[in-house]
């Protein structure tokens, strides 16, 4: 990025001005669409402004992990598809894709949004495996918040498939009407610090001048269920508190789109 553009952006942001005319703590328009992939057991598309993310849930029957014999399995994976940004390349997930998936995973897992005990079919032997995949379609900034919202929406959209007599998934049969056992609605808000200003929902150019960011998972009761600090500059305790306050305040904006 050109140094001049960077300087200009930082100067504008510290004055509270954004070049798409938004306020610092304002999201672009958010839309959620359900059932966008007939092949998945649950799926959703989230658009935040020009950014577009798909999330799909595949449900399968598997063995529980030895350390959690009475819980279903959960996995979150993200693909930063090369069609969504000229900078993304084919190949195994890099640092950014890995972080994206892991931070979404934490928000879902640690909020206990899925009641994993109810995913047990037979104790110690057979449980539901929930595989969630995030695919980016168009990246104009703010992938983290969009991905977390898309995953929550896809989980809400999911219906359990039928099982055959020998207990395997029957993908040919129509899905049942049974939903996943969801207990909470965690969403993620990324708050960004530039100069002494905080803002949310960064555009790609704004993401390039980020000094520090904090992603917080917020449940519908306003509790914080996951955090990830990013960027190279350190934050003070007061700043973290302020950023969390912003995240709590804005979480309902995202949830409203569901």
């Amino acid at each position: 990025m050109y140094q001049e553009l960077k300087t200009h952006l930082v100067r504008a942001l510290t004055k509270g001005v954004r070049y798409d005319g938004r306020k610092l703590l304002e999201y672009r328009p958010i839309t959620v669409e359900y059932g966008v992939s007939a092949s998945a057991e649950g799926s959703a598309r989230v658009r935040i402004g020009g950014t577009e993310v798909l999330a799909g849930v595949k449900l399968d029957v598997g063995e529980p992990y030895p350390d959690t014999p009475d819980q279903g399995n959960l996995m979150v994976n993200a693909e930063l598809l090369p069609l969504s940004n000229p900078k993304f390349e084919t190949g195994p997930p890099g640092e950014q894709a890995n972080e994206l998936a892991r931070v979404v995973d934490r928000g879902i897992r640690e909020s206990k949004c899925i009641d994993v005990k109810k995913l047990v079919i037979k104790s110690r032997e057979k449980v539901w495996s929930v595989s969630i995949d995030i695919c980016t379609i168009n990246d104009e900034g703010g992938l983290q918040d969009a991905a977390a919202l898309a995953v929550l929406a896809a989980l809400k959209d999911a219906r359990l498939p039928k099982l055959t007599e020998d207990g395997q998934v029957d993908y040919d049969a129509e899905k049942t009407k049974e939903k996943l056992p969801l207990t909470k609605d965690p969403v993620e808000v990324t708050v960004i610090k530039v100069g002494d200003q905080f803002f949310v929902d960064a555009l790609t150019d704004e993401e390039n001048v980020i000094e520090a960011r904090l992603t917080a998972g917020i449940t519908d009761k306003g509790l914080i269920c996951a955090m990830q600090k990013g960027g190279s500059l350190p934050l003070t305790v007061e700043e973290i508190d302020k950023m969390l306050e912003i995240a709590q305040k804005l979480a309902p904006t995202l949830r409203k789109a569901l």
Binding site: S37, S39, A40, S43, L54, G56, V57, K58, D60, N77, E79, L81, P82, T90, P92, P93, S131, D133, C135, Y171
Partner: peptide, 18 residues
């Protein structure tokens, strides 16, 4: 050209990415 199925796009089980 790069052709890819999204992991959840297959008929039946999840398609391993890559």
């Amino acid at each position: 050209v790069n052709y890819n199925m999204m992991p959840f796009s297959g008929h039946g089980e999840r398609v391993r990415p890559g």
